[in-house]
């Protein structure tokens, strides 16, 4: 089923991406184009393939539990779009309960 306008808007919202009225049409056509191409994959025989079976010779790589202090902190805060003292500042958070999960479970 081709992707409709409200589907585009649903995804755009999920991606936190403002799209203008003019952008919607082209985006719709593009996405449907991609998915049309994708239909070819459906003809492939992919039976019994473990999608994550790619060999990986770095499996299990890890680091020691050692602390080091990073000196660049001020360079970051100095470039913060909206710095307030030692903090990054963000505008009013309206009800976004679908997003507060991590914040709330503390």
């Amino acid at each position: 089923m081709p992707i409709g306008k409200d589907e585009i808007l649903r995804i755009a919202n999920l991606a936190r991406l403002f799209v203008s009225e003019e952008e919607i049409g082209p985006l719709q056509r593009h996405l449907n184009g991609i998915l049309e191409h994708f239909e070819r994959l459906k003809e492939l025989d992919l039976e019994g393939i473990d999608p994550f079976a790619f060999e990986c010779d770095t499996a299990g790589s890890s680091r020691q539990d050692a602390v080091s202090v990073w000196p660049g902190r001020e360079d970051v805060l100095a470039q913060a779009p909206n710095r307030e003292g030692d903090f990054f500042r963000v505008p009013r958070i309206l009800d976004e309960s679908d997003e507060v999960h991590l914040d709330e479970c503390r």
Partner: peptide, 30 residues
């Protein structure tokens, strides 16, 4: 410039990304 957090996200990303990047972000999100 934004009134709310949601506003900040939508506008910043809407303004900051060009058409091809938007196409790919939306395709990937979908």
């Amino acid at each position: 410039e934004a009134e709310s957090l949601m506003d900040l996200y939508m506008k910043t990303r809407g303004l900051g990304f060009g058409p091809e990047v938007k196409r790919r972000i939306l395709t990937g999100t979908y």
